[in-house]
Every structure is written in C-alpha cells, then in structure tokens.
Amino acid sequence: MQAYNLNHIRELESESIFVMREVAAQFERPVLLFSGGKDSIVMTHIALKSFSPARIPFPLLHIDTGHNFPETIKFRDSLIERINAQLIVGYVQESIDSGRAKEETGPNASRNVIQTVTLLDTIEKYGFDAAIGGGRRDEEKSRAKERVFSHRDFFGQWDPRNQRPELWNLYNGRKKDGEHFRVFPLSNWTEMDVWQYVLMENIEMPSLYFSHTRECVNRKGVLLAKSDYIELMEGEKWEEMRVRFRTIGDMSCTGATLSDAETVEEIILEVAAAINTERGSRADDKRSETSMEDRKKEGYF
C-alpha cells in the first residue's frame, strides 16, 4: 500500500485551515486581527487558501497605535489591495482623544497596554463575535495554556482558570450575547514553522524582518530603533548597526536583533541557531513575570 504522509508544515497548515473554516461556519461576524507582523501575514495567507476561490468572508482589523513602523503601514495597504479584502482600522489616538484611554508618560512610555481599550471598543462597535489572532503557544508561557477557541466574557476578559476543555477537533464556539471568542489558528506553530512555511509558500514579508542598517539605542539589552517615540536617557546614544526584527510591534517597545540574515533561508538558519526566544526582545513582556497574562486577562491580543 502506498504511504500517505503529510509533512509537519502541511499538517499544521491543514489544521489552521480547518480552524479558519470553523470560525466562518460557527460565528456571525468574525474578524481577523492584522498587526502587520509575520504571524498575521501568514494567517491572512491561510485565510485566503481556506476560502479560495471566494474572497475571505470577514474583514481584517488593524489596531493602529500611531507608533507603527512606517514600513508596516505601507506593507499592510499593499497587501489589502492585492487580496481585495476589507480593512477596518481602530485608532488608539481616538481612544486617547475621547478620554477612553490614558497615555503613559516617561521614557519607557508605550501604547502597548492601552491598545486593549481600542481593540475592545472596536470589537463592540462592529459587533464582532470572533476575533482571529496570530498568537502561538510557543511564544510566551501564559499562551501555552490558551485554547484554540478562547472564550471572552461580556467585558472581553479571559479567565485562564476556567477555560473550557478542548478535545479532538471539536471546537465549542457557543456563547451568550455580548460575549466573544478569540481564535488562534496558529496555536501549534513555532517561529521556525512560520519561517519554513514562508519559504515553502514564497510569502512576501516586510523588509523589517531582513537585515538592514539602522540607528538604534541599546536600552538594558533591548535594541530600540530610532524614532520620534523614543527619547534618549542619560548616557545613551544612537548607534548604527546591522539589525533585523524577529517580531514587529510598536516602535516604542519592539527590539531589534543584530543580524546579517538577508533572505528567508538565512533567517531559518539563524532561528535554528538562536539562543534567545523571539519575545526576548520585547520590552512590553519584560515589565513583570506575568505581564502577558495580566494584559491577556484584560482583553489583550
């Protein structure tokens, strides 16, 4: 008998497609959270495949902190045009202007925490009942126990101690009015899997992921890129270096890594040899041991 085998990437892809279609089938108004980072780009690629040759049957939502890398916005807009998808943007600035969110101050100020307000407000405004996110369980320890279909209460909050058991491929998306779900189709992917898939599928990625020369400041081991959002502290200086980004968030809290990797192949070899996790360069995770869990409980991505 012939051997029927899927390699690990194709198996993960099939699983993610299954989850995407399950969302489209179980919910009235889903939305795909698009940050402009590699996971949301891969997720969009998988969403396209899941419903081909039809269009993606739900909009994409970008929560714009106003502190983005300019490359991210450019990449986002060209992708949206190419795939003919609907894009909704929620602006953190609007939440600040309307008094719903209060901006942090000081040299390490970031809009990372307050974007949760904008996210939850946008979900409520449009009546979204499922928000598909690119979170992966290998990223961060509190994500290791996240469900694929993760329930959020009326206030958008996550209760990690009372999660519904998730068995086989039977995803329970039942909810009451006003509640919603976060769904994570890439739960079982690792950073390595994502890059292998990018290579296999030849997916276009923003230039930020590849090695380039940039002025950065070394703040407690995190290399922050020069921008209007970073003020130098005493004793700090801008230095030119060869860097790339392993994750892309706000300019105010995403650190670069020293790298000469210019192609996807070189990135894969670099990831294989890496001794630190990708989120090791995220200042937002370093605030406390459970900072991710604390933000997630409030309704963060």
Partner: peptide, 10 residues
C-alpha cells in the same frame, strides 16, 4: 516553571 506560566500556578 517553563510550563507553569499562570500567576496562580506560580
């Protein structure tokens, strides 16, 4: 501690 990531677990 690698897997016990939740505050209550710690």
């Amino acid at each position: 501690l690698l897997t016990d990531g939740l505050r209550a677990e710690r």
